[in-house]
Amino acid sequence: MTTGVRATARIVARDDGRGGTSLPVLAGEGPLALRRTRGSGDEARVMIVGAMSGPLGGDHFTVQAEVAKGALLHVGSAAATIALPGQAKGEARYDVRLHVAAGGELRWLPEQLISAQGSELYVSSRIDLAHGARLIHREEQVLGRAGEQPGRLTSRLTVRVGERPLLDQELACGPGAPGGWDGPAVLAGHRAMGQLVVVRPEFERDPVQPQQMGEYAALTPLAGPAVLVTALAPDALQLRRVLDQALQALT
């Protein structure tokens, strides 16, 4: 039996002492290549460049990022990530581990994750924020390429502020997922879903009001200095439009 690929990419962002952000660690591995690109203002911008498509069945990818006090890191990806069935048996894993210190800011804005037919992927995103850290985190999932049945996709997003759970959400869909995932309580046939988390210390004093964004999206203040935008859409394009609109309204 073939075993899958294991790869870890690491990013550390620090205040460079001159009003910008330096990247003392920027280490890609195998299929997870990292490129520093031109950022705007004080930010350091990093693109995750998929050197090959994946993750495939049996692969285990990990991306770690750490943002220190005073640093501003923006992470994007060059293209959508496509989960594909592989030669190796079993599900693929994609772990994202993010740490932001007080006074640091992370903008995590990758492209979509597409769950191709026959794939099996478990994504786990764990974000640990210190009190006083700032975060923009976008996550979009698309069930199947055009006209295709989705694979099995489970995605868990956990955000903590100073050890205290702020948000913990898991969505499981595709063949073999617990019943009702495509039904009237969960997705109701939508093929694209996204979450945008924005954490800002000032929300503590100045909480954001809940807001409807059409029938299939809502902006909700969490039990902490944060808001979550949850959106469903027929496709990736329409989903992005809603999340962009929400992000704009918040900035």
Binding site: D168, A185, V186, E215, Y216, A217, L232
Partner: peptide
Amino acid sequence: VDALPAASAPLLEISAEAHA
């Protein structure tokens, strides 16, 4: 408590806000 399940239903959350 991180060991507790976190299974979510986006439509239940979204439509609860509209309903309220």
